[in-house]
Design a protein around this nucleic acid. Structure first.
Lengths: 189, 189
DNA sequence: CCGGCCATGTAAAGCGTTACATGATTTT
DNA sequence: AAAATCATGTAACGCTTTACATGGCCGG
């Protein structure tokens, strides 16, 4: 059910098309929730039927598939507020990389080392993208409105997550006697 | 597919019954992968059909449902080694709590504060359980075998994750002007 | 004019959750 | 004697992923 609310939370900020929502749930902007466009379009159709959102008919402005802009309704806002108030479980843990380590002796140290390095690079790229988002939108955390502070903290959560990953890669390298080939401040690509 | 390999990784350490595997995928021990017993039994049946594991027929020792102990096969080990060698994607991000913050202005500060506190307690409990595991099994990281080091790092990953959560809760409290009611070193229950 | 991005969808298969079900053993 | 834990499953539903499909627009 939570995809529903992730979409509603985005729409509560401003109206958006399915595609725009998808962009927020993919790549660097996807620090809260990841979803494919198929999921999102399906979910939007379902929520429209339930009356949580309304869509502007795309104003048949050409042969192009009508761009539908979704807007959250009073009912959708209420539904979202109810969900926020209701206690939720912790997100379930599922870490393929840690599973690989658990049985890592079945592969060569080189293979493990390469996989660690790949993930380290991916996490570093993600962290840099997130820090850029923070710099662009929340330069001075002390002067933010309450609403902005909450959004900033959501972003800070993702930054903390990625920072923890990078610290763990350092620890792993030390304990396994690996030296990652990419230096600390190498070019990003 | 990854549940398959999480189970194989456990069976690569030692043979186990479905229930024992379930115990490792639930509660405090579930720091790598979470799954319900239903998933695990289904997966084990599937893997037996594929020849990745064999099961000892439970030796009809009473009326009790035969306890089936699974053992990984050569083929299963090969399959697992292949999966480890093949690069995998980062785990997808899905954080209900951060989504709640994003639209947090729709609820009262009290409700947000309570939910933050609930999660903070849950994460602290989890961290304490993980640290106990680390103390019990990996007291001195420097003298471990390679295989043990890899397993220790899997655990360290989970510890880093929980530590990052707790740091984030502190930051959140400061920025929102909340004081969590539970003191830093309160009893665990 | 080709490749990538915008923009939306359908279909099927696989994975995860919830509910239901059974019955023995161990602990309180 | 009741409750919790051990131990294994079936069934249904819902969410996620992958593959397939279409066509316009824009930059090199």
């Amino acid at each position: 059910m939570a995809l529903t609310y992730a979409i509603l939370a985005v729409l509560a900020q401003r109206p958006a098309s399915g595609y725009e929502i998808f962009k927020r749930f993919e790549g660097a902007g996807a620090y809260l929730w990841q979803a494919t466009h198929q999921q999102i379009y399906r979910e939007l159709n379902g929520m429209e039927a339930l009356g949580y959102v309304t869509a502007t008919a795309g104003a048949a402005c050409g042969q192009r598939p009508a761009r539908r802009v979704y807007r959250i309704t009073e009912q959708g806002l209420q539904q979202l507020a109810d969900w926020i108030a209701e206690p939720c479980d912790l997100a379930p843990t599922r870490e393929p990389l840690a599973v690989k380590l658990l049985a890592g002796h079945l592969a060569s140290p080189q293979i493990i080392g390469r996989e660690l390095e790949r993930h380290r690079l991916a996490h570093r790229r993600k962290l840099l993208a997130l820090q850029k988002l923070a710099d662009d939108h929340f330069a001075d955390p002390e002067v933010l409105s309450i609403q902005q502070r909450l959004q900033y903290l959501a972003l800070r959560r993702a930054i903390g997550e990625e920072t923890a990953w990078l610290a763990w890669f350092e620890e792993s390298a030390k304990l396994l006697g690996i030296r990652f080939s990419t230096p600390e401040h190498a070019p990003m690509h």
